[in-house]
């Protein structure tokens, strides 16, 4: 198996007139990975993708896809990528099958291969029922799937999707997300999003971008661990609040606690542990020893939103 990384970006910088869109970023993506680019609007996600797709050159630095330089061997790179730009532009006057056939031919597939691949992607993207419909008359969810089918039609090594679920309803988002997840292993996928939950659900690795820089790059789990020290344990216990407060104060690993009444005799305790401690076994042991009733014991996971806020915060403070 080829071990060269699918994407190698080295000190990539892109400046538009008077504005730096990408500032000296470097990263690499291994084959078969699903990587999410996460960032606000204007963070440099689309610029990175456009450079990788060979649509525009970088001001400095190099980017390679499957070992080919995106600038010097642009055609070789474009042969190996399936790219869906932001807002998914399509030829609205064409029919789904006709459009995909046209795109397959542009991507160099011969007649036989086109026919074979058409059936596969129409099936894969659940478009078989609408294959004869005019694209302009399709719902946004279907249009998005047409864009995905287009990106997949020539079986590219790398699939680049710029905001693939933007503007879709929750049901459609789930469908598209599942489709992307199914690509894992056989394809390398680079997705951008400003919705944190989305990359968390689909990606094996997340890169957080802010103002043209990559602030963090890791698995969603590792990024979770980054802020795990501040993780909260929630326990709902039927016990007198004073006694609970006394116990939490006595427990050395608890840094901070709050006790609030829940329904009936239950008290809702929100506990913050000292870094690295998992309080759950101790809480369970305590409840058992005191003969109290326990109906909930959970560790609240940090959403990527928390991680994103934490990672981006120091930089913002530096600047202001």
């Amino acid at each position: 198996m080829d071990v060269t990384p699918m994407i190698e970006v080295h000190r990539l910088t892109k400046r538009y007139a008077g504005r730096t869109a990408l500032a000296d970023i470097s990263f690499s993506v291994a084959r078969g990975e699903i990587v999410g680019l996460l960032g606000d609007n204007g963070a440099g996600k689309s610029t990175t993708m456009r450079i990788l797709a060979g649509f525009m050159p970088a001001t400095s630095g190099t980017a390679r896809v499957a070992g080919y330089d995106v600038f010097h061997h642009s055609k070789e790179v474009r042969r190996r990528i399936g790219y869906m730009p932001e807002n998914n532009p399509l030829h609205n006057e064409m029919r789904v099958r006709e459009y995909l056939k046209f795109r397959a031919r542009l991507k160099g597939l011969n007649r036989t291969a086109t026919r074979e691949r058409l059936d596969v992607v129409l099936e894969q993207c659940s478009l078989t029922d609408v294959r004869k419909r005019i694209i302009g008359q399709l719902s946004k969810g279907y249009r998005q799937r047409v864009g995905l089918a287009d990106a997949l039609i020539h079986e590219p090594d790398l699939i680049i999707l710029d905001e693939p679920t933007i503007g879709l309803d929750p049901h459609q988002i789930r469908l598209v997300r599942q489709l992307i997840k199914n690509l894992a292993g056989s394809h390398t996928v680079l997705i951008s999003s400003h919705i944190l939950h989305e990359v968390e659900m689909t990606c094996s690795r997340v890169m957080i971008m802010l103002r043209g820089r990559i602030l963090a790059s890791d698995t969603p789990e590792n990024l979770q661990r980054l802020v795990a020290g501040r993780g909260q344990i929630v326990a709902e216990i039927a016990a007198p609040p004073e006694e609970l407060k006394l116990e939490w104060a006595r427990m050395g690993e608890v840094e901070h606690y709050e006790v609030a009444p829940a329904e009936g005799v239950f008290q809702r305790c929100a506990l913050t542990a000292r870094a690295g401690f998992d309080l759950r076994p101790q809480i369970f042991a305590l409840v058992q020893a005191r003969g109290w009733q326990l109906r909930e014991l959970t560790r609240s996971r940090h959403s990527l939103e928390d991680i994103y806020m934490q990672v981006t915060k120091p930089n913002e403070e530096e600047e202001f």
Binding site: F55, K75, L90
Partner: peptide
């Protein structure tokens, strides 16, 4: 204007 130029130019056409 419609953006299809980007999808066209990112296929391996000259």
């Amino acid at each position: 204007y419609s953006g299809t130029y980007e999808t066209l130019m990112t296929t391996p056409v000259g």
